[in-house]
Design a protein around this nucleic acid. Structure first.
Length: 198
DNA sequence: TCATTAAAGTTAT
DNA sequence: ATAACTTTAATGA
């Protein structure tokens, strides 16, 4: 799914380092680069007027950041912040488009990646807007788990804090915690030293 | 069914 | 130590 590292390098990409808490880009800035995570985790988020955070997505190794906006003459609708120390490949818009033109197969793969992200976004949004707390949380966990090799029950440790889970589903943290406890009782997940196994 | 508030326990830096 | 995260309980929309 990701674009090969050496290919990006030969097209002029540079490797950027970010510390935890650093912004990669901010809401309303204008998109100038294609970013691809080598290692680390990045969240895409917004804050509402009360300061409450909504996390759009949490991205990790080999994911790209904010790429769809390169195709539009619009500013970023969200922030991107490093959740851990990150190594990220960065290449300017023009070089990126040249690269895609030179490699039509790459273009296709890239479109597929974007479509896939969009698809998951639709799934999550429909669940968040129509379903109860347990179903919302289950959907977030399911979407993360489907990337995993091992699909057997309780094999996947959710790499998110309760807080992040709440911010991804639009729930408050207390409801998130209580609902997770209830889901454990209902055998939908297990909890081992505070970590959620799904 | 879920948010809010408050208070306290736990873990990570 | 201090901040960040987790948990429980009470109350109200």
């Amino acid at each position: 799914m990701p674009i090969k590292e050496n290919l990006l390098h030969s097209a002029g990409a540079t490797e950027e380092h970010y510390n935890m808490g650093d912004y990669i880009f901010r809401e309303s800035a204008s998109p100038q680069f294609y970013f691809q995570i080598i290692t680390g985790e990045v969240k895409l988020n917004n804050y509402n007027s009360d300061g409450k955070e909504f996390i759009q997505n949490i991205l990790t190794n080999n994911d790209f950041l904010g790429a769809p906006m390169l195709f539009l003459d619009k500013s970023y609708p969200m922030n991107a912040m490093a959740l851990s120390p990150c190594r990220i490949l960065k290449i300017c818009k023009n070089s990126f488009f040249k690269l895609l033109e030179m490699h039509p197969d790459l273009y296709t793969h890239f479109c597929t990646s974007m479509a896939n992200r969009l698809y998951n976004k639709y799934i999550l949004m429909k669940t968040i807007s129509t379903h109860n707390a347990a179903e919302r949380l289950k959907e977030v966990m399911q979407l993360m788990k489907q990337e995993q090799e091992n699909q057997s029950p309780y094999s996947f440790e959710i790499p998110l804090t309760r807080q992040q889970l709440a911010s991804l589903t639009g729930l408050c943290i207390e409801t998130t915690i209580r609902t997770i406890k209830k889901m454990e009782k209902d055998q939908m997940l297990r909890i081992r030293n505070r970590k959620i196994l799904y």
